[in-house]
Amino acid sequence: MESLKLENQLCFPIYALSRQITAIYRPHLELIELTYPQYLVMLVLWQKETVTVKELGKLLWLDSGTLTPLLKRMEENKLLSRNRSETDERVVNILISGKGKALKEQALAIPDAIKNALATDEDQLFSLRDQLKQILSLTTENK
């Protein structure tokens, strides 16, 4: 029964760390009036400027049922716009707005603030990130 002890679970420290890191982000994101999921969307849009809902869902590991209300709120806040593709009405394109682009300047300090708050060296953080990405890629291959 050792396998059913909380301290032997892989999922628990990942879950707990995810919650802790999200809590560290919260005050920084409140300053720019974004939630953590909205911040993730903006990270993609700051990089790509235009993305389909399907592509965004794949990048963020979210389904369209989760993304749709999130994107609707962000569109109401004028951070992005959603438009159906002219060539295929099933495809919805997400485009960053001017307000969304301007928000990038305010967000530039967030990654360094998070690294500093975690009080560990950058090599450890990058190593952990890379290990987690590797595990995620393996879980995708097995589907």
Rank of each mutant, 00 (worst) to 15 (best):
T22A: 09
K78V: 06
R90D: 14
A23E: 11
N83K: 14
E2N: 12
F126R: 11
R19E: 12
S127V: 01
M1T: 08
A109I: 09
V53W: 00
L132S: 03
T68H: 14
T66Q: 15
T35H: 03
L6A: 15
E30D: 14
K101C: 04
D88A: 15
L132D: 03
S3L: 00
Q134S: 15
A23D: 12
E76M: 15
S3Y: 00
L80I: 14
T50S: 04
K133L: 12
L4Q: 06
I21Y: 02
P13Q: 03
S137F: 09
V44D: 01
K72V: 03
M1F: 07
N116P: 00
L31F: 00
E76Y: 15
L136Y: 14
E55A: 12
L6P: 09
S85G: 09
A117I: 05
Y25H: 03
I96G: 01
T52A: 02
E33C: 04
V41A: 01
P27E: 05
T50H: 01
K143F: 10
D63G: 07
E49K: 11
N83C: 07
N142R: 11
T140Q: 15
M1L: 07
A109M: 08
L79H: 06
L17W: 09
E89W: 05
M74W: 08
N142Q: 08
D130M: 14
Q124E: 15
Q134R: 15
T52F: 02
P37F: 00
E105S: 11
F12W: 12
E2I: 13
L59Q: 06
K104L: 03
D121L: 00
S127Y: 06
L71W: 02
F12V: 14
A117Q: 10
A23N: 08
P27M: 04
K101N: 04
R82W: 01
A109L: 10
V44Y: 01
Q131F: 14
V92H: 04
H28Q: 11
M74Q: 07
R19M: 12
Y15E: 08
L4W: 06
K115A: 14
E49C: 10
R26N: 03
V91H: 07
P13Y: 02
I96T: 02
Q47A: 11
I14C: 11
Y39A: 11
L118R: 04
L59P: 01
T87K: 15
L118N: 02
A119Q: 14
S64H: 12
L4F: 09
